[in-house]
């Protein structure tokens, strides 16, 4: 069964008198365990697509199914639950909360996920172990390097074992050495069975993914699976 299946997704915005078509009939299918890069220049609609896949935005038209359920049927509070429990987010600017320790940052989705899990600390430890950050668990974000911050953010995205990890230009703020390390980490996670979608405009970054979806003007112009 597919994890994500969209048919004819369309998103239009009104900007003044003009109607902007950010997505113009996007149909795609992502299966569990896939490592996908969505490539495209700015304005191509890739971020909009990611927001919709991440339950942060709704399409104007078209159908979207997630884990077999119709997304448009899901109410607002339930969307929050999905963001906490079924989706993991990684951002370009890391977006760790500056006054929380690495552990507390990692635990945010657990707090908001309301799963009733008592042993939160070991959840955080497992996630931090996976990204090799246990030694930084008590640090504040501003005591970490850029690469470390992004790894902490990835631990946060993984903490609730989500069905889908969405990364929006996750390497945009990193030096080339860290770019490779972070992308390699995503590769490992995909190999372990996580479903990863990375949005980027960088061909090198997209090269780490096994499947590349190229977008232009709100449409998919290329969808190529690459066997490794």
């Amino acid at each position: 069964m597919s994890l994500v299946k969209s048919e004819n997704l369309t998103k239009t915005y009104r900007m003044g008198d003009e109607t902007v078509r950010a997505l113009d009939g996007v149909s795609l299918r992502i299966d569990p365990g896939e490592f996908v890069a969505i490539l495209g220049p700015s304005g191509s609609g890739k971020s909009t697509l990611m927001h919709i896949l991440g339950f942060m935005d709704s399409p104007s038209a078209g159908r979207l199914r997630f884990e077999g359920g119709e997304v448009s049927q899901i109410g607002r509070a339930r969307r929050s639950w999905y963001r906490a429990n079924r989706i993991g987010f990684v951002f370009q600017a890391f977006n760790l909360l500056p006054r929380l320790s690495v552990t507390d940052n990692v635990l945010l989705p657990v707090v908001y996920g309301r799963s009733g899990i008592r042993d939160r600390k070991s959840l955080a430890r497992v996630a931090l172990e996976r990204v090799g950050m246990t030694h930084r668990a008590r640090h504040l974000p501003n005591q970490l390097s850029g690469g470390e911050r992004q790894r902490a953010a990835i631990a946060r995205a993984l903490v609730n074992s989500p069905a889908l990890v969405l990364a929006d230009e996750p390497t945009g703020n990193l030096d080339s050495q860290n770019v490779d390390r972070i992308m390699a980490l995503f590769g490992e996670l995909a190999a372990e069975g996580h479903t990863i979608v990375v949005v980027t405009h960088d061909e090198h970054v997209a090269g780490f993914a096994r499947r590349r979806i190229r977008m232009h003007d709100g449409r998919i112009t290329e969808d190529s699976s690459m066997d490794v």
């Binding site: 429990n85 977006n95 989705p109 908001y112």
Partner: peptide, 16 residues
């Protein structure tokens, strides 16, 4: 505002 966005993105509801 940014913090609020992050919290919401990782699952915080409006009521939270």
């Amino acid at each position: 505002i940014r913090e609020i966005g992050v919290r919401k993105a990782v699952g915080a509801r409006g009521s939270d």
